[in-house]
Amino acid sequence: MKFFISSSLCWDYHPKEVITLAKKFCFSGVEMWAEHIYHHDANAKVLRDYAKEEGIALTLHASSWDLNICSINKGIQEQSVKELKKSIDLASQLQVLHMTFHPGRFTVKDYLWEYHQDRLIENTQELLAHAADKQVTLSQELMEPIAKEILTQPKHMNVFQDKVGTELPVTLDIAHVPLHESSIQYLEQLRFVNSIHLSDSSKEQYHVPLGEGEVELQHILEVLSTMDVPIVLEGMDTSRELTFLKKHIQFLYNHKWIERKVSI
């Protein structure tokens, strides 16, 4: 399997250091977060060249915090599109395999469905056109079923893809699948999946270290092992200890999904 690490697991480390860590722990790649690169004022071309030198593949998670391409507030909507185009430009500079990005969401509850649906389609088409110009492959993330999110189920994503009018790959986040539903069924129902985000989940919290939640990980990993797509270990850790990442690694090692060649 091609395990990647999310750079958000190593937030306090410079993105170039994250590539070094991925190499150290024998991962195939890194999903860089755009906000992480901006936070450290990292040079995209330096990261691209260093990753190639180290044999580490790159994907990019676009900016998503505070953004909403469906917002009723036109200023926020327009700026959100601009920020995602900026992420696409960054993805082009990094020469990533693909860029995962979040869909828009409702501004207030689920009011004005048609307005939000139209903006979601139009603005996604605009982003796809910009990505095509930059030779960047996009991947739309299926979101968790929480208030205001629009694309939360495979059937919603499939209908949306048809309305967009072009092939749009999908990132399936295992932690976003409700615990009472099957991640495998989600995987089977979705079309064009080109990326997996992997972490555990509990009734109280999305995105916890592998083995600390209630997801049936063993069966899921058996299925994922047959796929040739990046499997990105996710989470947020702002410390220098890399506790979240090390828990992921320990779980995968204990269950023989990876070989631990260095001490953690």
Rank of each mutant, 00 (worst) to 15 (best):
C10Q: 09
S183W: 03
S7A: 11
V30A: 09
V223T: 12
H255F: 10
A34S: 14
A34H: 11
A51C: 13
V223M: 14
K109T: 12
A91Q: 02
E114Y: 11
M157P: 02
P178R: 08
M99P: 02
I220G: 13
M236K: 09
T238G: 10
A62D: 03
P103E: 04
V18N: 02
Q153W: 07
E149P: 01
H207T: 15
E17N: 11
R119F: 08
A175N: 11
N68P: 05
I37D: 06
G29I: 04
A131N: 10
L187A: 07
H219T: 12
T166W: 02
P169L: 06
K203W: 13
M1E: 06
S201D: 12
N73F: 10
F251R: 11
F160D: 02
M143I: 12
P209M: 10
E181F: 09
E17C: 08
L94T: 03
F160N: 00
T238I: 14
E259P: 03
L90T: 06
H61K: 08
E83L: 09
S92T: 02
V164R: 08
M32S: 10
R240L: 11
G104D: 00
F3T: 06
L242H: 13
K45H: 13
A62C: 09
A131L: 08
A132S: 13
K24I: 08
Q161V: 02
F192K: 15
T124L: 00
E212V: 04
H116A: 02
L179Y: 11
V229T: 05
S92V: 03
S195V: 05
S28H: 04
Q125W: 01
T59S: 15
S6I: 03
L120T: 00
V18C: 05
T137V: 09
S225H: 10
E181T: 09
K23W: 04
T166L: 09
G55N: 14
T166G: 07
G213S: 08
K74P: 15
F4R: 07
L138K: 01
N194S: 11
Q93D: 15
S195H: 13
H207Q: 06
S225Y: 04
P230H: 03
A131I: 05
Y13A: 12
C26L: 06
H130V: 09
S201C: 15
L9D: 02
L221V: 13
S225I: 06
P15I: 03
A131Q: 03
V18F: 04
S201T: 13
H14V: 07
H40Q: 13
K23I: 04
C26S: 15
F251N: 05
S28N: 12
W11H: 07
S28C: 15
K148H: 06
Q125N: 02
S195T: 03
P103F: 11
P103R: 01
